[in-house]
Design a protein around this nucleic acid. Structure first.
Length: 202
DNA sequence: TAAGTGATACGC
DNA sequence: CGTATCACTTAC
């Protein structure tokens, strides 16, 4: 039923500083096939909101805890999925980036769905809703997003001009001190699927 | 505005 | 072992 989403992004795309990668991911396509044994449409969404989490010094980044079972994937090569559970309910999808094995990842916070809306149950604005709508969960942790046979992949989409990109502080990381102020959230200005930033805690 | 949910990391 | 915390969302 669906059209071919186009070429995959190669490993070299993700092999760069995470802040650059978070910016560059805007406009590209998250493509997710149904899990083995499950029916459903091919889900495709244009990435409209991302956040960068950068290394062990960044107190908002899970890698600040060091190399643990959970963060291990971030200490590996770029282009792999880092999926974890938050608040006991929501799976969040990240893409491991570089340079090299520098521990960092981009959180995909929202997509503009290209798959017809009536085929997607919930909304795709916000990282928890997105993972739920696209049926991404911890079982996908460690998947190679650059491999055509992977269930979860990222395909080339349209480039977004700098004028259409806004930056802001990351959401929900006020515990991270000065790191919370870094403008490492990237959004496509005015897109209706960008999540609404909740009021910051004090 | 608050509560829900369970893995994780850390202290004992 | 116990428990505080959490890159969120939804219902009151």
């Amino acid at each position: 039923m669906s059209t071919d989403p186009g070429p995959l992004l190669g490993r070299d795309f993700f092999d760069r500083d995470v802040v650059d990668a978070a910016r560059a991911l805007l406009g590209h396509l998250l493509v997710v096939a149904p899990p083995d044994g499950k029916a459903g449409p091919l889900r495709v969404g244009r990435i409209v909101e991302t956040e960068a989490y950068r290394g062990q010094d960044d107190l908002a980044c899970h890698a600040a805890k060091g190399r643990t079972a959970r963060t291990e994937i971030m200490f590996g090569p770029p282009g792999y999925a880092y999926v974890y559970l938050i608040y006991g309910m929501y799976d969040l999808l990240n893409v491991v980036t570089g340079p090299g094995e520098f521990p960092s990842a981009v959180l995909i916070r929202a997509v503009d769905p290209l798959t017809p809306a009536h085929l997607l149950t919930p909304r795709t604005d916000g990282p928890g809703r997105l993972a739920r709508a696209f049926d991404v969960s911890r079982r996908d942790n460690g998947l190679d997003l650059c491999a055509g046979e992977s269930r979860v992949r990222i395909h080339r989409g349209d480039a977004i001009p700098d004028l259409a990109v806004e930056t802001s502080p990351r959401i929900g990381v006020d515990y991270a001190g000065a790191w919370a102020a870094m403008p490492w959230r990237f959004t496509i200005a005015g897109n209706r699927f960008v999540s609404r930033a909740p009021k910051r805690r004090t």
